[in-house]
Amino acid sequence: MNRGLYALKPWYADRLGGARRALAARGVAPGAVTAAGVGFGALAGLALAAVRHPPVAAVLVAALLALRLAAANLDGALARETGATTRWGAVLNELGDRAAELAALAGCFALAPPWVVLLAMLVGSAPSWVSLAGAAAGAARINGGPVGKTERCLLLVVLAALPAHAGALLIALAAGSALTAALRLRALHRALAG
């Protein structure tokens, strides 16, 4: 399966090593990092909705979504480094990831018809739900694909830069997410049926 931008995760995790060690040294709880990620997603949504100068909006959204992705990477890594991993923490991590993405997408209500935004919100989360369902069934977690979490963030940056095309970009996000979910489902079927 095409891993998309997710293939860069090990490289990205290495770049965040200093931040992870600093957070651990300061005793920051992994849940606080998860909450920060949700906050960054919400701020990205606010920037999408409120900033009317596309270049400024794109820079703000890119920075906030980069921080959101960093938090999504750091919370679990911080938990592992500090020996604070719990099953409840894993649940909070997943819920935080979905909440951060939905909060960012909510900013699109100011830029596109509500049905298009709702479609993007619903279908955009499908790849994650497929992966989580597979993990619940005992399969290895499947990530990546043509429009995974990182690609969806990138599409929101493009949307911030080109707000006149918000509807078309959200439909592309939904279509790519549906394809990603279908590819993950096919991979899970092969893994679980074999």
Score class of each variant (00 low, 15 high):
residue 154 L to Q: 00
residue 12 Y to D: 09
residue 164 A to T: 08
residue 154 L to Y: 06
residue 120 A to E: 05
residue 63 A to M: 11
residue 74 L to R: 08
residue 66 A to Y: 05
residue 165 H to E: 05
residue 28 V to F: 10
residue 54 P to V: 12
residue 78 L to D: 07
residue 87 R to T: 15
residue 76 G to F: 04
residue 90 A to P: 08
residue 43 L to W: 12
residue 194 G to Y: 09
residue 52 R to Y: 04
residue 158 V to G: 03
residue 162 L to G: 01
residue 194 G to R: 14
residue 90 A to D: 14
residue 49 A to Y: 10
residue 156 L to N: 03
residue 162 L to D: 02
residue 180 T to F: 09
residue 84 A to K: 15
residue 153 C to F: 01
residue 57 A to H: 07
residue 102 L to K: 04
residue 63 A to Q: 01
residue 31 G to F: 02
residue 155 L to R: 02
residue 154 L to A: 14
residue 109 F to R: 07
residue 42 A to T: 03
residue 148 G to Q: 13
residue 4 G to S: 00
residue 178 A to V: 06
residue 118 L to Q: 14
residue 149 K to M: 04
residue 50 A to H: 02
residue 184 R to P: 06
residue 16 L to G: 09
residue 127 P to C: 00
residue 77 A to H: 12
residue 67 L to M: 11
residue 45 G to C: 03
residue 22 A to W: 10
residue 50 A to P: 03
residue 14 D to L: 14
residue 53 H to W: 15
residue 22 A to F: 08
residue 34 T to D: 09
residue 40 F to A: 09
residue 39 G to P: 02
residue 188 L to E: 08
residue 100 A to Q: 04
residue 79 A to S: 08
residue 125 S to I: 10
residue 158 V to L: 14
residue 142 I to G: 06
residue 90 A to M: 07
residue 76 G to P: 07
residue 42 A to V: 10
residue 122 L to Y: 07
residue 24 A to G: 10
residue 41 G to A: 14
residue 20 R to I: 08
residue 98 R to D: 06
residue 89 G to T: 09
residue 162 L to M: 10
residue 63 A to H: 01
residue 7 A to V: 01
residue 100 A to K: 04
residue 149 K to Y: 01
residue 11 W to Y: 11
residue 20 R to T: 03
residue 131 S to H: 09
residue 83 G to K: 15
residue 66 A to F: 14
residue 21 R to M: 06
residue 100 A to N: 01
residue 179 L to C: 13
residue 136 A to G: 12
residue 136 A to I: 02
residue 136 A to L: 12
residue 37 G to F: 09
residue 116 V to L: 11
residue 190 R to H: 13
residue 11 W to M: 11
residue 9 K to P: 01
residue 34 T to P: 06
residue 118 L to W: 13
residue 19 A to W: 12
residue 42 A to K: 01
